[in-house]
Amino acid sequence: MPDSEKKVLLDVQNLKTYFSSGHGRSKHVVKAVDDVSFRIFEGETFGLVGESGCGKTTTGRTIIRLYEPTGGEVYFDGKKISGKMSKDDLRSLTRNMQMIFQDPVASLNPRMTIEEIVSEGLRVGGMKDRAQRLELVYAILDKVGLTKDHATRYPHEFSGGQRQRVGIARALVTNPSLVIADEPVSALDVSIQAQVINLFNKLKDEMGLTILFIAHNLSVVKYFSDRIGVMYMGKLVEVAEADDLYRHPIHPYTRSLLSAIPQPDPLFERRRVRIPYDPSIHPYDREEPQYYEILPGHRVYASPSEYERYQKELGLR
């Protein structure tokens, strides 16, 4: 299906989030997210990768309004969700957009039972009847591979993998359409990671979720995502279909990132050549960079002369 026929669920336009410290002369501004635009279609998983400090987490958190954007707009299901919103709109937004956090220990309140944690979103959303809430809690616990008995327990009684399941149940109990998953498996052990990834895949199909998946493990992102965006220093440098991105990486940073992935294949590892990335190669002081759609659905951040070169490399010119 061409992109124009798919329904856009989340539309991020020129999003900027700056953090500043100090005042006057010593004022220092960090451009954590700098002019980032992308769209997520309904039912797809969009992966956001990049090294630590590139702004991928900040992007996710700004979308869900944990940070105030410095500039730009976010549209969810056609409605603007950045800037001022009425209480009712906010309530329906928080029901429809949920977040799963990286650290399953820090993100669960140790003094609340699993039932309280999971049902809090429903309670805040206006569901007053406890029996009704409980029914939904039991249903979602069952879905994520926990049992009814777990509802009365406290987070410390669970292992890391189970806690992440609670985190997933908490996010999904309100039946959201978009889930922002920020490194949901990186704190888990290898064998538990596979369980959680498989669970995600199952729930995604069953509940028709759209997922913004933020991670630094490129193999996991590739496996899990339909489309992938690569971020570097606050900029989104390349967006493409997952397979396309790995087959034809265009931006030099993407190439460098992909060439650095170690693979569980000793003979391959022995001949793998790492491509270093030097950010000073871009002629951005002379030419204004912008986004170009170089192949259908494949966008890259480049200056006009770079774009020309990339096209030549792909044999398009």
Partner: peptide
Amino acid sequence: MPDLDTKEQLFS
């Protein structure tokens, strides 16, 4: 763990 060519369900 998935590698770059994994498409099928992971063995957990």
